[in-house]
Structures are given as C-alpha cells and as structure tokens.
Amino acid sequence: MKTDIILSGVGGQGILSIAAVIGEAALKEGLYMKQAEVHGMSQRGGDVQSGLRLSDRPVASDLIPKGQADLIISLEPMESLRYLPYLKQEGWVVTGSQPYLNIPDYPDMEEIKAELGRLPHSVALDAEQIATEAGSVRAANIVILGAATPFIGIEYAKIEEGIRSIFRRKGEDVVQLNLRALRAGLDAAGRITVNH
C-alpha cells in the first residue's frame, strides 16, 4: 500500500486538520507516513500545501516527487490546479468548488471548471453548502475529506476513528458535526461521480 496525497488550499482554510485526521488514521493502521507542512509567512492568505505520504514500507522523502501523487485534496478550485505537476496520470482531484477571492485577478470560474474537466478523474463540490447543511460551514474541510475517502487507501471506518480522536478534546458535538460532514461529503461525491 502506498498513497501520496497533496493537500492544498489558502492559508487558514484548514488543510492541516485534514492532514491530522488522515495521519491519525494511518498511525492506527500501523502505516508509515511523512507529512510535510508549510508554516510561517505563506500562511497569511497565500497558497498553502501539504504533502502526505502513506505506505506500508518506510517513507524516505518528506516531499512528494512530481508525477507521483495519487490524489490532490483541495479546499479551493484554483488551488487544486496549482499542484497538477505532482499528480499521476491517473490520479484523482477532489476539490471544493467555491473560489476563495482574495486576489484582484482571480480567473474566470468557467475556465477553472474546464481545466478540471480535462482531467480523467476529478470531483468538485460545494463543500461550504454541504457543510452548512450538515450543521456548520466550519466543517467544509471535512466534507472534502469525506469526498476523498474512497481514494486514500484507508478504510472509511478508520478515517471516522481519526475524526473522533482529533476532535475529541473539542467535545462530542464537534465530533458528531465532523462525522456528519464526512459522510455528507462522501455521499455528495458519490452522486457527482456517478453523473460524471
């Protein structure tokens, strides 16, 4: 088993919580992992990414080589495209569809959709909307994680366990909210993928 995942978004959107949940699940599975994060200046509203590498053998490089990622999980549509050089030919892109508008020259959404459409495997979903329906827009990142669960290589139930242990200290309500968001993301992605 070996899965290389790029997590992307804009500073402050919550990619590191996704990484923490998957990391927790991977640790419980007894997998080896490395997860490279970006801290510091780039967190201030700039583009951020984290590389997550899971394997049943020891992982050498902290960085994912180009053309090797099985999956890009992005909280923002344009950011999902920024890391395409890391994606495998047959890799998946799972992204939020709501643009994060903090730059003056944000491209036309139709062009972004067209680029995503050119990839063999991509899912874009309105995570904010789905999260709001599940209880709070703050769980939008976990909705995207839910949509990506079929491609991570870890059982869904183990990801749920990851959610429980990462959010436990924030209380049972937060745990339940995120579990609902996870499921809602998975369901929504299933519907979209069937239509695709």
């Binding site: 180009k66 344009m78 050089p85 890391y86 680029e115």
Partner: peptide, 15 residues
Amino acid sequence: ACYDVPGVVAQRPPC
C-alpha cells in the same frame, strides 16, 4: 510531471 500548471492559475501571494 504528467501535467503542467494550467495557464489560468493566478499567483496568490501572502497578504
């Protein structure tokens, strides 16, 4: 890489 960064992607510097 198998894919290039599409030309449509804009810079997003920290702010």
